[in-house]
Each structure stands twice: as structure tokens, then as C-alpha cells.
């Protein structure tokens, strides 16, 4: 369950930002999570609540924006969208894909008081 470690990472980022920008309450934490990343959004929501307890983000809402998985198909020389790994090119069926986007796991923005 590495999502717990990821959520602890989010809390560390939020606490650092709170010290730098002096806010005292976080209402919303917005993430960008790629379709091919290591984070399962449902598990993130489950772990976030526990990781946020008794921190500045206690009770904050976790919003997750999903980013698409993109790959360059070496067989048909075009950029294609894939939903998950081990999926073939939707155009030609080849597995000769080089992932170009969709591995993101970022804290995008915070809504704070």
C-alpha cells in the first residue's frame, strides 16, 4: 500500500507550503494523477484522510484530476492515448509503444484559508 507513503508525501508538501506562504487551514488539495502512474485514485482518497488527520490538512477535500496516458506508437508513428499499460495501440494493434505522458503524480493546487 504505497499510497499511504504517497499521501504522507502530500502532507509534507502541504506543510512546507504552509510555512512558506503562511496559511493555517487547507480546504482542498487538488492532485493531478496520470492514468499510467503508480497511484490508484481510490486508494489515494482512502489513505489521504488518515494521513491528513491532526495535520493542517485535517478534513481537507482531496480532488483528483486524471491525466490521460499518451504513447508514441513506433509501428504507426503517431501519438496515441492508452488507458493502461500493456494495452495495444488503438490504431494498429502494436505493442511497440513508448510512453510519453500519464506517469504524473503532482500536487497541483491548494485551496487554503
Amino acid at each position: 500500500m504505497h499510497e499511504m507513503a504517497l499521501c504522507q508525501g502530500i502532507i509534507e508538501i502541504v506543510e512546507e507550503e504552509a510555512r512558506r506562504r503562511s496559511f493555517s487551514k487547507v480546504r482542498t488539495v487538488c492532485l493531478e494523477i496520470g492514468a499510467l502512474s503508480h497511484a490508484a485514485p481510490e486508494a489515494m482518497k482512502f489513505c489521504f484522510e488518515a494521513a491528513a488527520a491532526q495535520t493542517i490538512a485535517d478534513g481537507a477535500v482531496l480532488e483528483i484530476e486524471k491525466l490521460p496516458g499518451l504513447a508514441w506508437c513506433m509501428a504507426c508513428s503517431r501519438s496515441v492515448e492508452i488507458g493502461q499499460r500493456a494495452e495495444p495501440c488503438p490504431c494498429c494493434g502494436s505493442y511497440q509503444l513508448h510512453v510519453t505522458a500519464g506517469e504524473e503524480m503532482r500536487v497541483k493546487q491548494l485551496e487554503v484559508d
Binding site: 504517497l6 508525501g9 509534507e12 506562504r21 500536487v107 493546487q109 491548494l110 487554503v112 484559508d113
Partner: peptide, 16 residues
């Protein structure tokens, strides 16, 4: 607004 939106764009695994 008393609320503020802060754009941070930081990698969750940045520290690691």
C-alpha cells in the same frame, strides 16, 4: 475571498 487558491505543481515523489 478569505480562501486562497495556491498553484504549486509539485511532484508527490519530489522529496524521494
Amino acid at each position: 475571498s478569505s480562501d486562497r487558491i495556491i498553484q504549486i505543481e509539485r511532484d508527490i515523489l519530489g522529496r524521494n
